[in-house]
Design a protein around this nucleic acid. Structure first.
Length: 308
DNA sequence: AATGCGGGGGA
DNA sequence: TCCCCAGCATT
């Protein structure tokens, strides 16, 4: 079974930039960017990031502004903070290298059980399991497990990783989930594990894993004040990202409505009405050149709807 | 065990 | 529109 899976992976894997090397630094950066983020989204960010910070030492010396600028738009900005802190920790406590033992890895900021297993298996070819969104779908289908059971899942993944090439087995499981054993409409007819798959034999592909119920989205209304002269805007920096003034209610001042936009963050649906004008108070905002500061996708949307 | 965290993609 | 995606930290 492992043989079929690995053979399929070696023949069918996508050509991805982080697969051109097993350099632990490259593996680590790619795994952080790929958290809850699809491969296609990550590609341009990964290339730009490694061009700017080709080594762990370079990243450890980087200033927050540059790192956030490269991360801007990718989301989950805490990842970038943890990345900087972890890089410095690796330089100070691990001789400037990504550690190759589980305890050191899991102690780093932003590294959990998945990441530790991914770095150990992919970079160092050690037999540690990975359980990501793909594996949580592939293995339950393969074994016909209709109920969620994280412990059984990690144990099964651990058994599979006990092979000659853990890095190939783990990547193959994830690649299969990403390209064949997809959440909706899995392509069982081209699956290398079709003959072994309990879900396929019993027609359970669509009921494994069970769909998770999520809380309904909360609607939020906000006003944003955009004052632009010569490309300069009133903004402030929060957690390394620059934002326009945002209010629940229109504050004192004189404004013209210039547009509106919508944005979804986790389960919040934000509707923003955008105004131009002048605030009666500055509320700690300062004049910044928009194109020189890191901004989230929401802030970029607001600027764009104000200009059109 | 549940929740917050961005943003984008597919059906 | 709903749900997911190479998760982690906090409560």
């Amino acid at each position: 079974m492992i043989g079929l899976l690995v053979a399929w992976f070696e023949e069918n894997q996508r050509d991805l930039p982080w697969r051109r090397t097993y350099d632990p630094y490259h593996v680590w950066i790619s795994e952080v960017m790929l958290q809850q983020t699809q491969v296609e989204t990550v590609l341009p960010y990964y290339e730009r990031f490694l061009k700017e910070f080709p080594s762990l030492e370079a990243l450890a010396k980087a200033d927050e502004h540059t790192v956030m600028g490269l991360w801007a738009g990718l989301g989950y900005y805490r990842r970038a903070k943890h990345l900087m802190a972890a890089a410095r920790e690796m330089v100070e406590q691990h001789g400037g290298r990504v550690p190759s033992d589980y305890d050191s890895l899991i102690a780093l900021p932003g590294v959990g059980q998945y990441m530790a297993g991914a770095v150990l298996s992919i970079a160092f070819n050690k037999p540690y399991p990975v359980v990501d969104g793909n594996v949580r779908r592939v293995l339950p289908r393969l074994f016909g497990w209709a109920d969620e059971n994280p412990k059984a899942l990690w144990e099964a993944a651990e058994r599979l990783a006990q092979s000659a090439e853990p890095r190939l087995v783990n990547q193959a499981l994830m690649e299969l989930g990403a390209t064949v054993c997809s959440f909706r409409s899995p392509r069982c007819l081209v699956c290398p594990l079709q003959g072994e798959c309990v879900a396929y034999k019993t027609g359970m592909q669509d009921s494994i894993p069970p769909v998770k119920k999520r809380p309904a989205a909360v609607h939020v209304r906000l006003c944003s004040i955009v004052q632009g002269t010569d490309g300069r805007y009133l903004m402030k920096c929060t957690d390394g990202l620059w934002e326009f003034p945002m209010f629940a209610e229109l504050p004192a001042g004189s404004f013209n409505e210039v547009g509106s936009c919508r944005h979804t963050i986790t389960h919040h649906r934000i509707s923003v009405t955008v105004y131009e004008g002048s605030l009666a108070q500055q509320y700690g905002y300062t004049w910044k050149e928009f194109d020189t500061v890191p901004v989230s996708s929401l802030t970029r949307k607001i600027r764009n709807c104000a200009r059109s």
